[in-house]
Write a protein that binds this DNA or RNA. Structure first.
Lengths: 247, 247
DNA sequence: TGTATTTTCCAAATCATCTTTTGAATTCAA
DNA sequence: TTGAATTCAAAAGATGATTTGGAAAATACA
């Protein structure tokens, strides 16, 4: 494919101010980079390729980002921000602890179905970058989802135990993070392997992930009295994740 | 650090045959590469670095491997082979389906504790390579663990359902792979993030993973009659994974 | 409107690094 | 000693990241 340079006249229609134009350019670069990163892998993409994909010159890119890590960081920040935004109201509107956990996991399932490439980007980040970057930088990202980081989730577990929907023998902090890490790990692995999964496991990706959620929640849920409805608050404890068999 | 060349006289003691020497060299190269890959990330390591680490010249390495992918593949093959060897007898000696599953997960926990770097290598492979490599190549690897691939695991679930240790409503193929993928994903994520986990989650890595196993198995296990011992075969159904609180 | 100033952009070059090859020298077995 | 296998030093050729200096465009201001 020829380099497909943008003819110099066909810029953007109306750059009212320098500032607005700069924001648009920055966004354009990030979009091109994100696409390439998701397609070919973060470490496989060179500055020259990003350059070519945007139609800009290398030197121009350096006016916006000082190196590739900067770009990776910016993309990650945007992904977290947009994710946080989309999930926030769901969690807020969930009635209790178990429902909030369920809502979070369900959101992850949808992300996997609808934005698998972004999830794959995250997987690459975890595997390649996370180990080397300072912990504070990572915490900065998480604080976008919630100012207190993941610590809130512990509260959900406590709530769930209190209202009888979760097993009483759970250690709130430990359990929540174990479950979260398992869900995230499963989600990102599925995204990374992509359609190889169907060859390897013989199951469609999203079906597998929803089953994972189901098992995890089964493990969390308080044991129900065998076939006798004795519990006082059952309606909220039934998560609506088990679309298995229909999808 | 200076290149640390090996003085040409101090070769290996007794290169009896060309063949033996060649095997030793090959192994030496793989060891050096594996170390570098685990430390700095597969895509961050150059041939030149492997060269320097082995004390050989670039041209010599090319007599053994035709490119970096070849080295990656060889390391992966060795890791799978050694893993398969170490786990095989455990699985074989497990009395029933649930025990076999437990043994497998327990093995993964130990790998995470004792060979975290290797797990991290696998994580990188999943995130970077697996997506691009042909599926048959990946299946070749798995067949080292078991000639039938992961399909055997389905049988374990069936066994577990039959002997009453697992929930009767599980879909054997779906469930098993969902659980496996979750465990592998969790394990590799923990290995990738390493000590960042303690900052992020406030829990030591192996404790988190063992809790993950516990939750997953709780989700699989058949619901016990509430507080009344009615089940005929409970001893095998109690996994010995919950060392939490002691470690 | 027209000119000065600021900002953005490009073409090309620089400097670093990496992969792979070449041909000669060395080591080993017989 | 001979021939095969192995290694090395050096270089070729490619690709990479980043910088430089000036041209072009957008804005500000008279």
């Amino acid at each position: 494919m020829p380099p497909a340079k943008v003819p110099p006249s066909k810029k953007k229609a109306a750059p009212k101010t320098y500032r607005a134009h700069r924001d648009r350019q920055r966004h354009r670069i990030l979009e091109a980079a994100r696409l390439l990163f998701c397609q070919r892998g973060i470490d496989r993409v060179s500055m020259a390729e990003i350059t070519a994909a945007t139609g800009l010159q290398p030197s121009t890119i350096y006016q916006y980002f000082s190196n590739k890590d900067d770009i990776v960081w910016a993309i990650l920040t945007e992904l977290f921000a947009s994710g946080a935004e989309r999930i926030q109201h769901r969690i807020d509107s969930a009635p209790n602890g178990l429902a909030r956990i369920t809502a979070l996991l369900e959101f992850m399932a949808e992300e996997l179905s609808t934005h698998a490439e972004n999830v794959r980007f995250m997987a690459q980040f975890d595997a390649i970058y996370a180990h080397d970057w300072p912990a504070e930088r990572l915490l900065t990202l998480e604080s976008q989802i919630n100012p207190q980081g993941f610590r809130v989730f512990r509260k959900w577990i406590r709530e769930g135990i209190a209202d009888g929907s979760l097993r009483p023998d759970l250690d709130p902090g430990l359990t929540m993070h174990a479950v979260l890490n398992a869900a995230i790990g499963a989600q990102r692995r599925l995204a990374s392997l992509g359609d190889k999964i169907e060859v390897e496991y013989g199951q469609p990706v999203d079906k597998l992930f929803r089953e994972t959620i189901r098992i995890l929640l089964l493990g969390l849920r308080a044991p129900q009295p065998t076939n006798r409805r004795k519990a006082a608050h059952p309606p909220a404890t039934r998560p609506r994740t088990s679309k298995r068999r229909t999808a």
